[in-house]
């Protein structure tokens, strides 16, 4: 699978660590050292308490499909040759939600509640995307 035609992440100083760790096949999430809540996407401050005292925590990478959408028409040139295209919203054990794709599951087989775990897909030397596969398959 390739995502070459979709926009690639443009890392910035607030999230560079996330992408650096993905390259090492580690999923890291932001956690507030003051209120202990996780947040995503990475920002300079905690959206719960506004603290700037945040740490990066390695995630076990486990979650469940919270919802999904299957794109079936080439509404954008990037979808050509890759329909039907499934996008999942994964609710991680930490509580945060990640948008991603399932690598081992046909779009039409996606179901809400499916247990999934992170895998890593290198797009180029700089960018590795965290994606998900079904657990126990």
């Amino acid at each position: 699978m390739t995502t070459a035609n979709f926009p690639l992440p443009v890392p910035n100083l607030d999230n560079q660590e996330f992408w650096d760790q993905c390259r090492q096949h580690r999923l890291v999430l932001r956690r507030c050292l003051d209120c202990r809540s996780f947040c995503h996407p990475p920002r300079p401050n905690c959206p719960e308490c506004a603290s700037s005292n945040l740490e990066w925590v390695e995630s076990p990478g486990k979650g469940k499909v919270y919802t999904y959408v299957i794109t079936r028409q080439p509404v954008n040139p990037a979808f050509r040759e890759r329909l039907p295209w499934g996008v999942v919203e994964v609710e991680m054990e930490e509580g945060v939600h990640l948008i991603s794709n399932l690598v081992d599951c046909d779009a039409d087989d996606i179901e809400i509640g499916m247990e999934v775990e992170v895998v890593f897909e290198a797009v180029n030397d700089e960018i590795t995307l965290p994606k998900f596969r079904r657990v126990g398959q």
Binding site: P9, V10, P41, V87, I99
Partner: peptide, 19 residues
């Protein structure tokens, strides 16, 4: 185009409002 928080959505093909 992958800037800001879209870095965490658009690379997965979440590109248009209907999705």
């Amino acid at each position: 185009r992958g800037l800001g928080s879209s870095a965490f959505t658009e690379p997965y093909g979440l590109l248009v409002p209907g999705q």
